[in-house]
Amino acid sequence: MDLSKSLIAGLIIATGFLGGCASNNAQEQAQAAQSDNVVVDTANPRDPFESTNREIWEFNWEVLDAYILRPVTVTYVTVMPKVARTGLVNITDNLQEPANFLNNVFQGKVDDGLDSLARFLINTTVGLVGTFDVASKIGIERKREQFGETLAVWGVETGPFLMLPFLGPSDPRSFTGDYVDGFAFPMTLIDGTVNLARIGISILEARAQLMDQEAQLEQSIDDYAFVRNAYFENLEFRVTDGQSGDKAIDDEQLDDFADFEAMLEGSDFDSYNLPEEGKKEDKEKDDIDNK
């Protein structure tokens, strides 16, 4: 097990420990929120660890992001040329294509799986180890699928909502899926230093995408509840490939949160365009109905 996997395992254990040691329960937090004219939902069955999750969220957003991640991201964006950034993102995306291939096949989407395999072969060779996304240029689009989504297709439930230190919003199914995806080729061949660099690039690029959405998050009545609810909506959207239907939040909120979730997970670049894909699919469905 490399350093990054050990760190992730340690974080989930730490989260469980904090859940047993938290001194403020959900009722106390609700009373505090009411004194500030904030409405807090403490009865969400998918969030039994809400009091602890809220504390971790405050730490992630108000401490880690404010004093570390955001300043480092601003420096990174300022110093790193755009062409170099694009190349680095393409490389990190290309490393995930074998996992995309397996998960698409496991979900019965063989054609999409073959597209993922073709993308990996083309971009690794012609695209110089993935530096250039040649596959997209010739019309083979990325079909991103995670093992957590595969588990969902197989009928596994998400489990309780988890706000993880450093990693942000998650759930047991997604966390397990991310861990399993880390064993797909060529991830197992990457040493600890290179893997940490890959994760770092993913986090910085995803955080950079969030800059324009900061105001909306800060102006929300309950930023934690917004993140939690949008997390589950975005998760269902991805699992159903954009067919989750009309839910609690609108497409604009989902689009904004997709950027936010990517910053916290450090890997979900394609999710930025998911709502638009859903709109496109809905339009195609309407066209068929009209005929």
Rank of each mutant, 00 (worst) to 15 (best):
Y67M: 09
L69A: 12
L69I: 11
R70Y: 15
P71C: 15
P71D: 08
P71N: 07
P71S: 08
V72L: 13
V72F: 12
T73P: 15
T73D: 05
V74S: 06
V74I: 10
V74F: 13
T75G: 14
Y76C: 07
T78L: 07
T78H: 14
T78P: 07
M80I: 10
M80P: 15
P81K: 06
P81W: 06
A84W: 14
R85F: 04
T86P: 06
T86R: 09
T86G: 10
G87M: 08
L88H: 01
L88F: 08
L88A: 10
L88T: 04
I91S: 04
I91Y: 03
T92P: 06
D93N: 06
N94Q: 09
L95H: 08
Q96M: 04
E97R: 01
P98M: 11
A99Y: 05
A99P: 05
F101W: 10
L102Y: 00
L102F: 01
N103F: 01
N104K: 04
F106S: 05
F106P: 02
G108P: 10
G108M: 03
D111C: 01
D112Q: 11
D112Y: 02
L114Y: 02
L114M: 14
L114I: 15
D115Y: 00
L117M: 07
L117G: 03
A118Q: 01
A118D: 03
F120I: 08
I122S: 14
N123F: 09
N123K: 05
T124W: 06
V126P: 13
G127W: 02
L128G: 01
V129A: 11
G130E: 10
G130T: 14
T131G: 08
T131V: 15
F132L: 13
D133L: 07
V134L: 01
V134G: 09
K137Y: 02
G139D: 11
G139C: 04
E141V: 00
R142Q: 03
R142F: 00
Q146N: 06
F147Y: 07
F147R: 07
F147M: 13
G148Y: 02
E149Q: 14
E149T: 02
T150P: 10
L151P: 01
L151D: 05
A152S: 11
V153G: 05
W154Q: 10
G155Y: 09
G155M: 08
V156Y: 11
T158S: 12
T158H: 12
T158E: 09
G159R: 14
P160H: 04
F161S: 11
L164C: 09
P165N: 13
P165S: 04
G168P: 00
G168I: 01
P169M: 09
P169L: 08
S170H: 08
S170W: 02
D171H: 06
F175P: 08
T176E: 04
D178G: 14
Y179L: 13
Y179H: 06
Y179I: 08
F183A: 03
F183M: 14
F183Q: 06
F183S: 10
A184S: 12
P186N: 05
M187H: 11
M187E: 15
